[in-house]
Amino acid sequence: MIEPDCNEWQVRCAFNAFCKRVLKNEAINIYNERRQQQAKVMTFSVLTLLENQLYFLDK
C-alpha cells in the first residue's frame, strides 16, 4: 500500500475532526431537545379533574 502524502493526510485528519465535532454537537442538541420535551410532557394521571376534561359542550 502506498502511503498518502502529508497534505492528503492532513486533509483527512481535518475532515475526521470536523465530522466528530458535528456529530458531538448534534448529539448535544438532541439531548437538550429531549430534556426540554420531557419537561413539558405531563401524564393524564397528573392532571386534575378539570384539566382532564378533553371535550367541550356548546350551550
Rank of each mutant, 00 (worst) to 15 (best):
L47D: 00
F56C: 09
K20H: 11
E51F: 05
N29D: 09
N52S: 12
C13W: 13
M1R: 13
T43Y: 04
N32H: 07
C19F: 11
T43N: 03
N25H: 13
E26I: 10
N7S: 10
N16W: 15
F44E: 02
C6W: 06
W9M: 15
R34N: 05
Q53M: 13
C13V: 10
Y55D: 03
D58C: 12
L54V: 03
R35V: 07
R12A: 14
I28L: 09
E51H: 07
D5P: 09
T48W: 01
M42Q: 09
Q36C: 04
I2F: 14
V41G: 01
K59I: 03
L47F: 13
R21I: 00
L54A: 13
T48E: 03
Q10T: 06
E3L: 10
L57P: 00
L54W: 09
A17K: 15
L49E: 04
C19K: 14
L23H: 12
D5N: 07
A17D: 10
Q10H: 04
R35S: 06
L49V: 05
I2N: 11
V22Y: 15
E26N: 14
L50G: 10
R35C: 02
F15H: 08
K24Y: 08
A14E: 10
C19L: 15
I28V: 10
I2D: 04
V46C: 02
E8C: 06
F18S: 13
T48R: 07
V11T: 11
I28A: 15
C6Q: 05
F56A: 14
C19R: 15
V11R: 15
K59A: 08
